[in-house]
Design a protein around this nucleic acid. Structure first.
Lengths: 341, 341
DNA sequence: CTCCTCGATGAAAACCTTTGAGTCGGCGGT
DNA sequence: ACCGCCGACTCAAAGGTTTTCATCGAGGAG
């Protein structure tokens, strides 16, 4: 008998070695209950001895499941990916999906071309589901994905109708309220806000939290808030605009740590002491930023790792056809006090 | 006749609509030459009309090719992933692989557990090849991967024997020579070096370039170099060590922009003007760092996008069984002059 | 007119797994 | 002694594609 020396063993080989049929071997691998202890033992031994690994393609062909999940980042501004936040999300996704024994297929979508490719790919049935990160207003990709018969979990609220969509969001509004209330409790009376770009819902939610904590109407809010675009430089500029508009301000809630770092610089250049003259609260509690500003930044923590983990779990439930209690999950945020407020 | 309304069309459907056999349709899809113009036309029309997409699993089953490539980052220190460099590499990989119409399966390897999982996965034949980023000394993962019958292209030189390995490296040594020669040409006489951690080959190569440009032996080098660990904080510390050891130093070549940013801070705190008193050259030409230090940083540019692109092309050649002229590729580095030197 | 060649095409095997239908004892109930 | 049932198992089909081999027809050479 000729031994094919390098071919990978198939289920047939395993079955032969265990003295059972292919079907029984398959049932053992899929943890079917209808199998005797002896058979189970024999098959497991054979699997181990042969170093057998199921052929994913064959399995996918018959089960119509690929065992892969797409992770899609839609972001028109490719440079934003230098944002360490992005790296964190990817890392968390890789870990959570690996734990679920699912392949992670990463897709970065920048251009309309990329959108078309993503569309083809997702519609092509090459993955069982998708995790979608698409924070921007009227993102075409979301409308595309929405039409697909594919289980999808979104990170945060995508723009537009949320009917029937599954998502895991951070409590941006609640966090903003937390931050603002904290500033009020410090006795600050002239509190201003550096917001994120208002084509991102997370920025809007944070702005809304700020407004509601101070009972501001739109007109009132317009005077004491300024868009910092979620960049450090934008934070600097917004802060200096606010300083000139309201010289007597004594506290600022900044919608991201990166912008807060910029705002701190502006404040210090203007001769304001933090926190004595102006108290500052950021958002994100970004490790490599918040702890290294001077003074260290008080910030609202949102746990991206946790968010991604929940997204993966949620998607896995959808894939297993489990009924999910709620389509939307909201993750709590907490205030982390350091020295800036 | 019942029409299954939502099932995805198969090659059979395409063939039927085009009035040819499945075999011919398949040939059209795979650009086989042995097919008549009429058949080609008809099949293409049918494909288009039906929105047909080949079933990847079925194709993989018969061709023994998965159409997927693993991108593996081995990095014991998970926090390093906050490094924007990492995000750049991932982005470049995603783009290049998508252009090659290959699925990118991302694997992050931190622990021995992760290594075992990576081993199983790569050995399991779930991908056609791999791109491996493993900069550290004696990385177990490299020995594991080396034994696998799997085409692999490394980023930079992995530690250990390089026999038969395919890799795309940046010319770290050449870049370091460039930087050091530049400092010499400015008339600087007391040039020191903040190196990266010496368990990374790229750091060693840069150190070697520095040494050879100054004709230093090991002993001489030991006095004028200090390990900054590729972190900002490490750069600060190394710089202050060097300052106290050689107060009269008038130039420093720093092995990364991040460390250079730290070094700049230390220098300025010590009252040294840059570049008047001390000239500084970094390495990486990292957009978001080099351009935003004060003064803007002169730096050696290494193009990660280009590196990853070459890695992907190289791997694709291996997968197509093309003979590659050289197993190792070295990418040039250039000096980008700004104001710090 | 016959034979041969050659290019285009079709029929069918092969890839490996899951799964529904069917087989085969053994066992409890009558 | 028979029936029905049940659990463990096997058989074989199905899933969608590529690819080898055979076939078929046309056209050129003799």
């Amino acid at each position: 008998m000729v031994v094919s020396n390098h071919a990978r063993p198939t289920l047939e080989d395993v079955a032969a070695r265990a003295g059972v049929s292919r079907a029984t071997a398959s049932r053992v691998l899929n943890a079917s209950p209808r199998v005797s202890p002896e058979a189970l033992e024999a098959v497991n031994a054979a699997v181990h001895a042969l170093g057998y690994q199921p052929n994913r393609a064959a399995r996918a062909l018959v089960t119509r499941r690929t065992g892969a999940v797409a992770v899609v980042f839609s972001e028109p501004e490719p440079k934003i990916f230098d944002d360490p936040h992005f790296a964190r999300l990817i890392r968390a996704g890789a870990r959570a999906l690996a734990d679920a024994d699912v392949q992670m297929v990463l897709m970065l979508v920048h251009s309309p071309d990329d959108q078309a490719r993503a569309h083809r790919f997702l519609a092509g049935g090459h993955v069982d589901g998708a995790l979608v990160f698409a924070p921007h207003r009227n993102d075409e990709l979301v409308s595309i994905v929405k039409k697909l018969p594919l289980p999808v979990v979104y990170a945060g609220k995508p723009w537009g109708s949320l009917r029937g969509m599954h998502l895991v969001d951070n409590d941006n509004e609640g966090g903003a309220v937390l931050a603002t209330e904290h500033l009020k409790s410090l006795g600050r009376r002239k509190i201003v806000h550096v917001s994120g770009p208002l084509d991102e819902l997370s920025a809007i939610d944070r702005l809304n939290g700020f407004k509601s904590a101070l009972s501001l109407d739109d007109k009132g809010a317009a005077r004491v808030t300024e868009d910092g675009g979620f960049t450090r430089e934008g934070g600097r500029k917004a802060m200096s605009v606010l300083l000139s508009r309201i010289p007597s301000l004594d506290a600022v809630f900044v919608a991201s740590d990166l912008m807060a770092a910029g705002a701190l610089e502006t404040l210090q250049e203007a001769g304001r002491r933090v926190p004595e003259d102006v108290a500052v609260v950021g958002f994100d509690d970004h490790a490599t930023i918040a702890e290294h500003t001077s003074p260290p930044l008080t910030s609202v923590r949102q746990d991206s790792d946790e968010q991604v983990k929940h997204m993966v779990e949620h998607l896995m439930k959808l894939l297993r056809d489990e009924t999910v209690k709620s389509k939307k999950q909201m993750l709590p945020t907490v205030l982390v006090r350091r020295e800036s407020a």
